[in-house]
Design a binder for these strands. Structure first.
Lengths: 217, 217
DNA sequence: AGACGATTCAAACATTCGTTTGAGTTTGGG
DNA sequence: CCCAAACTCAAACGAATGTTTGAATCGTCT
C-alpha cells in the first residue's frame, strides 16, 4: 500500500498542503519533501505548479459532479420530473460533503482546497466550473427555482448564494465551534450535511423580504 | 483631497490589493507602486508586512464591532433584555454589510479582505477576534441561542456556523450571480443584508434534524 | 545482454520576495 | 537661521520561489 506512483504521491501531498496553507502559501520544496519525491518531479509530471493545481481540481470535481448528477437523475426519476426541494438540496449537498471518502480509507481535505480556491482563484474556478459542469449546475438551479416562485428572481439568486456560502464555509470546516473528537469523520460529515439541508430549505422557503422603499412619496 | 499622508495611502492601497489578490498574493512592490510611495515606506511606517495586515484588520474591525455593540445595546434596551431573534440578527449583520461606507465617499473592499482572512489567516484571525471582541461575540451568541432551545447544542452551533458562512460569503460578494449595475452600492448592500437576515432567521428557526441512527438494535 | 525511453536526481538558473542600509530631503521648534 | 528629528529615496541584501539542465538510474523491450 505504500507503493504509490510519484504522481499519486505528489497529488496527495498537494491536497494536504493546499488545504492547510493555500496555493501560494505552499512551496514546491515543501510539497516534494512531504511527498518524498525530487523537487523537479512536479515540473516533470505536471509541467508547472499551476497545472498541478488544476489537476487537483479536476480529479476531485469530476467525481463530485458525477455523483451530483447521478443523485439528481435519481430524484427526478422517482418524482416523475417534479422532485421536492428537499430532495434536490440533498442531491446537491450530500456529494459535496462526502468528497474525500471515496476510494480512500482516510479523510481527505479536498473540501478545504475547494473552499480556498473560491477566494484565491475566484474567477478561474468560476470559469472552470462553468466550462465543465455548467449544464449540471443549470439543472440544479432550475430544480430549486421551481420552488421559489414566491420570490422575485433577484431575491432567489441572493438566497442561492447564501446557501452556497454556507455550504462552502461548512465544507471547509471553518466553523468557530470545534467538532467533537470522538465522532467518526463520516458520521460527523453526514450529520453536518443533513443539518445544512434543513437550514437551507427553511431559509429558501422563507417569505419574501418586504424591502422598505427608501423614497418618501 | 489628494493630499493624504503616506500611511493613509499605504493603507488604502493595501485594502484594495489584499481584497483583489490576497495577502501572500500581494507584493510590497505592487503595493507601494499603487500607493505612489517608496518601497521602504511600509517597513518604516508599519515595521513589517505582517504588521500592516494586522493594522488593516484592526482599523476596520474596531469600527465594525463598535457598531455591532451599539446596535445590540439598543435592541436589548428597547426589549428589556429579551430581544427578538430578528433584531439580534440585524444587529449582527447590518454593520458587517455596511463596512466600507463610513467616512468614505466610495465603496470599500474591506469586506473582501475579511473574507480572505478567514481562509488565509484562519487561526490568527480567530485568535484576534477572540482576543479583542470575544465578549461582544458571546453576547450575540447568547442572544441568538435563547431562541434555539428546540435544538440540541451541537445543532445550534452548526447553524450558527452556517449563518456565519453565508454572511462571510455574501460580504465578500463571491456570489455566482452578478449584481445589477444600475443599483447604487448602499442600496445593493442594504437589500442583501435584509435578505440574509430573513434567510438566516428561517434557517435557524427550522425544526431540529431527526438524524437517522446508523446502528440497528 | 544490450539498448532505448522513462524517470529520478543534485545542482544551478533567473526572479522575486521582504527587509535593511545609508545618504539625501523635508519639516518644525528654539 | 539652524539643528535635530521625521521622513523619503535609490540601492543593495540574503533568502526563497518556480523552473531548467544534464547526467545518472531504472524498467522493459528485442
Amino acid at each position: 500500500m505504500a507503493a504509490q506512483t510519484t504522481k499519486d504521491r505528489i497529488l496527495k501531498a498537494a491536497e494536504n498542503l493546499f488545504a492547510e496553507s493555500g496555493f501560494s502559501g505552499t512551496s514546491l520544496r515543501q510539497l516534494t519533501q512531504e511527498a518524498n519525491v525530487n523537487l523537479a518531479a512536479v515540473n516533470y509530471h505536471f509541467g508547472s505548479k499551476e497545472n498541478l493545481i488544476l489537476e487537483v481540481f479536476r480529479r476531485h470535481l469530476d467525481g463530485l459532479y458525477r455523483r451530483r448528477e447521478e443523485a439528481l437523475d435519481e430524484v427526478e426519476r422517482v418524482s416523475g420530473g417534479q422532485p421536492e426541494l428537499r430532495d434536490v438540496l440533498e442531491a446537491f449537498v450530500y456529494p459535496a460533503m462526502a468528497v474525500g471518502f471515496d476510494s480512500s480509507d482516510t479523510e481527505s481535505p479536498f473540501v478545504k482546497v475547494l473552499a480556498r480556491a473560491f477566494v484565491e482563484y475566484r474567477d478561474e474556478l468560476r470559469q472552470f466550473l462553468s466550462d465543465h459542469y455548467g449544464e449540471i449546475n443549470r439543472r440544479f438551479f432550475q430544480g430549486i427555482a421551481r420552488h421559489l416562485t414566491h420570490l422575485d428572481p433577484e431575491e432567489a439568486y441572493a438566497r442561492l448564494d447564501f446557501m452556497i456560502g454556507a455550504l462552502t464555509y461548512a465544507m471547509a470546516d471553518f466553523g468557530v465551534f470545534k467538532r467533537p473528537p470522538d465522532l467518526p469523520p463520516d458520521e460527523y460529515w453526514r450529520a453536518k450535511a443533513e443539518r445544512l439541508v434543513i437550514f437551507a430549505e427553511a431559509g429558501l422557503k422563507a417569505p419574501a423580504a418586504r424591502l422598505e422603499s427608501p423614497l418618501p412619496a
